[in-house]
């Protein structure tokens, strides 16, 4: 049975029957933003990443995990070892099995302990079903790679977070457990609007506490989560390019020299 089904799906795909699903792209094109990490000389603004982490921790982490990042990785964005320890300790992770091989306590809950720096970020739900059940049937995806996994990357993520208009278009049909979003394919998203002015307290008073600012900061943080190597990659790239231009120019000169008499 399973074969026949898969083969049928695949055949349908080859013939493009299933690509009708593509019709779901009545979403708006996200605007292009001026990120610090854009371009050949791109870099991360550590203060921004730390603000973004604060937004992530206070808001997004209630529903989304960050599977590929460990607390200790936060040192790369400027937290000290002690700060990282303190941050980790705010979260509980599963600790079982204990000496007796038990995974659960008397109440049937998983045994836990405070997280340590080497632990991966805590995942708010024990499994996908629990995550879906808590979110009206939609699964909040892990965010460690989200900016690489969506067309439009960081521009898309920032636009999505802000893309909840006060009035949705009249012809939009949004099911009860979904929300209207300008940028989400199909417009009906399982995530409600999360960012409002003043929901997160920033220490630096010069930074506005607006939804817009939160969105940009948390998106920058997610870019770092997806591409922690970016700064190293780009700065090495610049050196390699300069080197290659010189080398290639030399090769060209040598070639001209060697070939000068061939005619």
């Amino acid at each position: 049975m399973k074969t026949i089904r898969t083969t049928a799906i695949a055949a349908a795909l080859i013939l493009g029957v299933a690509s009708g699903a593509q019709a779901a792209t009545d979403a708006k094109e996200p605007e292009t933003r001026d990120w610090t990490f854009n371009g050949v000389f791109g870099y991360y603004d550590e203060a921004q990443l730390r603000r973004g982490f604060q937004v992530f921790k206070d808001i997004c982490n209630a529903c989304h995990g960050l599977d590929y990042i460990a607390y200790r990785n936060l040192q790369a964005i400027g937290y000290t070892e002690d700060e990282v320890k303190a941050i980790a300790a705010e979260f509980e992770v599963r600790s079982g099995p204990d000496e007796d091989g038990e995974e659960l306590n008397e109440d049937g809950d998983f045994l836990t302990r405070p997280a340590l720096p080497f632990d991966k970020f805590n995942n708010p739900y024990p499994n996908e079903n629990a995550a879906k059940a808590a979110n009206g049937g939609s699964l909040p995806p892990d965010l460690s790679l989200i900016n690489k996994a969506r067309i439009g990357g960081a521009n898309y993520t920032a636009a999505l977070l802000l893309g909840y208009p006060e009035e949705m278009p009249e012809d939009a049909h949004i099911p009860d457990d979904k929300h209207y979003n300008d940028y989400f394919p199909g417009n009906a998203i399982g995530m409600p609007q999360m960012l409002f002015d003043e929901v997160v307290e920033y220490e630096d008073e010069t930074i506005p506490m607006t939804a817009e600012q939160y969105a940009v900061d948390v998106t920058a943080f997610l870019q770092w989560a997806a591409e922690p190597e970016l700064e190293e990659r780009k700065s090495l790239g610049v050196v390699v390019m300069v080197f290659l231009f010189v080398l290639t120019w030399l090769f060209y000169k040598v070639k001209q020299q060697v070939w000068r008499d061939v005619h």
């Binding site: 790239g237 390699v240 040598v254």
Partner: peptide
């Protein structure tokens, strides 16, 4: 050919790094 390798590497590594 070495000159070709140089030009090619510029093209190839541009994508790799940027």
């Amino acid at each position: 050919d070495l000159f070709g390798v140089g030009v090619f590497l510029i093209f190839y590594l541009y994508f790799v790094f940027f």
